[in-house]
Amino acid sequence: MTKSAEEGEGRREVTSYCDWMSKQPPELHNIPLFNLAIPGSHDSMSYDLDINSSIIEPDRLKPFSNIYCVRKIVRKWAITQEENVTKQLDAGVRYLDLRIARKPNDTNPTRLYFYHGLYTQTDVETVLKDINEWAEKHPKEILILALSHFKGFDDATIHNHLINFIKTLFGAKLVPRKATPTLKSCWDQGRNVIVSYDHRVHQHPEIWSKITYYYGNSMDPTKVETTLDQNLKRARPSGSFFVCGLNLTLPEDAGALCYVLRLCDSLANVIRRSLPKLLQWVKEQAEKTQINIVASDLATTDDFVPTIVKLNISRYVKA
């Protein structure tokens, strides 16, 4: 996806958010990535959900996995992204929310998938290879991969297999977790992949621990804003990555039926109606407090990436 944006009179114009990090002015090169505004996608692999998959969540619908129309409803209300990972990266997304699971009774004990309500069609190793290929073609773009959940992982063996695969695949591109990365330090060292692994099993210097993710836990954008505002005031970390999640969340109780029974609606449509308001909140919030990673549903929507990237110019670059 190609877009145009003016970064200030007399400054170089960003003509494609595919390489927006490499186009940033010198004022941003030595600022810790913890302090930069970075666009991300929530449930990044949900565009790939398999209608033939068994239902993983919510628990109350698992017994109805054999009913096609139930799976179809789950899928319609679980898809939060419309473009594949490569197109998300092309659009300027630099943080990927990757929730991983192992299918029970899979004949391949180390074959893994992503999930959100249903399993994905594409396995984890295939997607990570695609991400690695993109990172090689864009060496000055820093990618942050947040791996989490690990549903169906019975023991440390699967974790160790996945971590070793990651270390082998990305190799010298991995930014070590004790670093305080900046754009310049990553460029100078030839490293452009940060992997966060949300499980206590890992003890690898190349792998980062869990990145704090704040979200509103509501379908009401006003409640999302209020909760995020409270969290950022009370518990925003310093000297580490953190995520401000703009994503909407379906209720875990029967209240979800108020949404999923809207036959002519979908989560994507609800998000489209809510995202402009949430982006306006981000711009106002960035004037009051530090914003780091901002993750959104429908992250390839035209206004999302430019809005987040421009926060860096308004904060750090004098006109």
Results as ranks from 00 to 15, higher is better:
68 Y>I: 12
68 Y>E: 14
68 Y>V: 13
72 K>V: 10
73 I>H: 11
74 V>E: 06
74 V>T: 08
74 V>H: 07
75 R>V: 02
76 K>G: 07
76 K>Y: 07
77 W>G: 01
77 W>D: 01
78 A>R: 04
79 I>H: 01
79 I>Y: 02
79 I>M: 05
81 Q>H: 01
82 E>I: 09
84 N>F: 04
85 V>F: 00
86 T>I: 10
86 T>N: 08
87 K>H: 08
88 Q>Y: 07
89 L>W: 04
90 D>F: 09
90 D>A: 12
91 A>H: 04
91 A>G: 05
93 V>M: 03
93 V>D: 02
94 R>I: 01
95 Y>M: 00
95 Y>E: 00
96 L>T: 01
97 D>W: 00
99 R>L: 03
100 I>S: 01
103 K>Y: 07
103 K>W: 06
105 N>E: 14
105 N>R: 15
105 N>M: 15
106 D>A: 08
107 T>N: 15
108 N>H: 15
108 N>C: 15
111 R>P: 12
112 L>E: 07
112 L>V: 10
112 L>Q: 08
113 Y>G: 09
116 H>V: 06
117 G>Y: 08
117 G>Q: 09
118 L>C: 14
118 L>G: 12
119 Y>P: 10
120 T>R: 11
120 T>W: 11
120 T>I: 14
121 Q>W: 12
121 Q>R: 12
121 Q>Y: 14
122 T>G: 09
124 V>A: 09
124 V>W: 05
126 T>C: 11
126 T>K: 10
128 L>F: 08
130 D>Y: 12
130 D>N: 14
130 D>K: 13
132 N>T: 13
135 A>M: 09
135 A>L: 10
135 A>K: 05
135 A>H: 08
136 E>Y: 13
137 K>H: 11
139 P>A: 07
139 P>G: 06
141 E>L: 04
141 E>T: 03
143 L>H: 02
145 L>S: 00
147 L>T: 01
147 L>E: 02
147 L>K: 03
147 L>R: 02
149 H>A: 09
149 H>F: 09
150 F>D: 04
150 F>M: 07
150 F>S: 05
150 F>H: 06
151 K>I: 14
151 K>A: 12
152 G>N: 07
153 F>K: 08
155 D>A: 11
156 A>W: 15
156 A>G: 15
157 T>M: 14
157 T>I: 14
157 T>F: 13
158 I>A: 14
158 I>H: 13
160 N>F: 14
162 L>S: 10
162 L>P: 08
165 F>I: 12
166 I>M: 11
167 K>L: 15
168 T>A: 12
168 T>M: 15
168 T>C: 14
169 L>F: 10
169 L>S: 10
170 F>M: 09
172 A>E: 11
172 A>C: 11
173 K>S: 07
173 K>F: 06
173 K>A: 06
173 K>I: 07
175 V>E: 01
176 P>R: 05
176 P>L: 06
176 P>Y: 04
177 R>I: 00
181 P>T: 06
184 K>A: 08
186 C>W: 02
187 W>E: 05
188 D>V: 03
188 D>E: 04
193 V>A: 04
193 V>K: 03
193 V>G: 02
195 V>T: 00
197 Y>Q: 02
